[in-house]
Each structure stands twice: as C-alpha cells, then as structure tokens.
C-alpha cells in the first residue's frame, strides 16, 4: 500500500485551514465582546459624572441623573438575595448532604434544572399573578424582590451544591469520628470550607438579578417616580427597566440617548465588577464553581 504524497500534503493543508478558521472565529467572538463593551464604554463614559449618578431625572428623563434607578436596583438585589440566598443554600445542602441517590434526588435536581430554564418573562407573569394580585402586594419592591428571588434560586442552589460536592469526604468522616452530628458537621466543617465557592454563586446571582428586566416589568418597575421609595410596598425604578424605557418609548428618544448610554455603561460596569469579583474569589481559593 502506498500513500500518495499529495494526500499527505492535503491533510496538512486542511488541518492548517481548519485550525486557523476555528482560532479566527474564537478570537472574533472575543473581539465582538470587546466591541460591545468598548462601544458602550466609549459612548457612556462621557455622560458619567457625580451628578448623573446622584441626581433625580429631570426634563422628561433627558437630563439629570439615574439615582432613583440605582437605589431601586440596590433594593431589589438586597430583597431578592434576602430570600434566595438562605433558601437556595439550604436547598443545596439538602441536595448534596441529605438527599439519598434515587428518584427523589433526581426529581429535585430535574426541577431545579427546569426552573433555571424557565424564561424570565414567565417569572414576570407568575410574579404578577401570585405576588401582585393573589397575595395583594401590588406592584411593589416586595413583589419584585420575591419574583427576582425565585429567578435567582436555581443559581444559588446549583452553585451551593457544586461547592459542597467539592468538599472532600474525609472532612466529614473525621467530624463524625469525633462524635459530630450530621448537622453539626455541615455547620462547623463542610460549610466553612465551601463558603468561598458558595459566595461566588451569590455574587453571580447578584449580577444576574441586577440586570433582569422582564420579571420586574409588571411586579415593581415604575417609568418615573418623583421621589425615592419609602417602604417595601412602594414601586421603584430600576436600572435595566430605566434603560429599556428611555431607549424605546417616550417622546424624546433621541434627546434621552446620552442618558441611555450612561445607564447601559453603569449596567456593564456592574456586570464587570461582579464577574471580576467572582473570578478573584475563585482564583484566590483555587476551586472552581461552574455556572452551567
């Protein structure tokens, strides 16, 4: 059997082309990300100043600042995490430490996956039906926070589960050998070791919640409020919703464009901070929490 030389050459050439192509595409995707970031930063950074961040919007949202939207987003993040973090961490503990392998565990994990796959607008519909109407909270920070909390729940559950999974079993066995009960072991041994990774999950959930628009459309978001919310039963403005309304509706879309760029810039900065913080935490403690 003989190998024609041209076949060998074709093989090499094909490989060079395909490798070059896939490398080019990969760098292209990265370049695209930087293009998006660069575009928003370039357009938005000129708008950013102290007044923009701390003043109320004026002149039909074409001037002034985005202070109420920042405050609203902070409230929503705090409110949703107050709900999602404890419940999610405990659910993660249940799945990894208590649930016995079998149909029940499979079912719980499947439900968490399904919940993570539910589109955000469905959370909005559900939050409106349950919290706003059925429970009578009205469009309020409470209703919005709970809706966003449900959305963040699967993220917290999964990262907690992964974090607990990465804790070596010998730690648990050592604690049991010393007479520690199951819960005591989890509380004093497992959780402290897994904490950094659990916190990474929390940070990622914060990032996700602060950028979500669809779930808050009907549960809390207000187009414009003359003053800051004073209780959890008030409506609030929020950064992503603010960006949506000033870039698509209203009579002065062109005039409010600079405000829109500034808001997009702030949202992008939040995302960058969240991702960098998560990456630092992850690198610092050396163990990886996977998101998908």
């Amino acid at each position: 059997m003989e190998f024609p030389e041209s076949n060998e050459r074709r093989k090499k050439l094909g490989q060079a082309i395909m490798f070059g192509l896939s490398r080019g595409i990969s760098y292209g995707i990265v370049a695209l990300l930087f293009l998006i970031l660069f575009f928003i930063v370039k357009q938005g950074i000129g708008v950013i100043n102290w007044e923009f961040l701390t003043a109320m919007p004026t002149d039909g949202m074409t001037k002034g600042g985005i202070w109420p939207a920042i405050v609203g987003t902070v409230y929503l993040v705090l409110g949703s995490m107050l709900f999602a973090f404890p419940v999610g961490v405990m659910a993660g503990i249940y799945v990894n430490e208590y649930a016995v392998a079998g149909p029940v565990k499979r079912f719980v994990k499947m439900m968490t996956n399904n919940l993570a796959g539910v589109p955000s607008i469905i959370f909005g519909l559900f939050g409106m039906a349950l919290f706003v109407n059925q429970m009578g909270f009205g469009a309020s920070i409470l209703a919005g926070s709970l809706t966003l909390g449900l959305l963040a729940l699967p993220i917290v559950i999964r990262t907690t589960e992964e974090a607990l999974k990465s804790v070596d079993d010998t730690f648990r066995q050592a604690s049991y050998a010393l007479g520690g009960s199951k819960l005591y072991t989890i509380r004093k041994v497992v959780l402290p070791i897994a904490l950094p990774n659990i916190l990474t999950g929390l940070i990622l959930a914060v990032g996700r919640v602060s950028g979500e628009t669809a779930p808050i459309l009907f549960t809390v978001a207000a187009y414009f409020l003359p003053k800051l919310p004073s209780s959890i039963m008030d409506q609030a403005m929020a950064l992503p919703y603010h960006l949506y309304v000033i870039s698509t509706s209203g009579t002065q879309i062109e005039a409010s464009r600079p405000m829109a760029y500034g808001t997009a810039f702030v949202l992008v900065v939040i995302v960058l901070i969240v991702n960098i913080a998560a990456a630092l935490l992850r690198n610092y403690f050396g163990k990886k929490v996977k998101m998908n």
């Binding site: 998006i36 955000s120 950028g211 979500e212 960006l243 870039s247 949202l267 995302v271 998101m291």
Partner: peptide, 11 residues
Amino acid sequence: AGIPSVVYGFF
C-alpha cells in the same frame, strides 16, 4: 453570558 439582555437589546 453575564451581560444583561436589556444591554444587548440596546446595543
């Protein structure tokens, strides 16, 4: 994956 959908929409 972390960029909010509303920012993609705006872009």
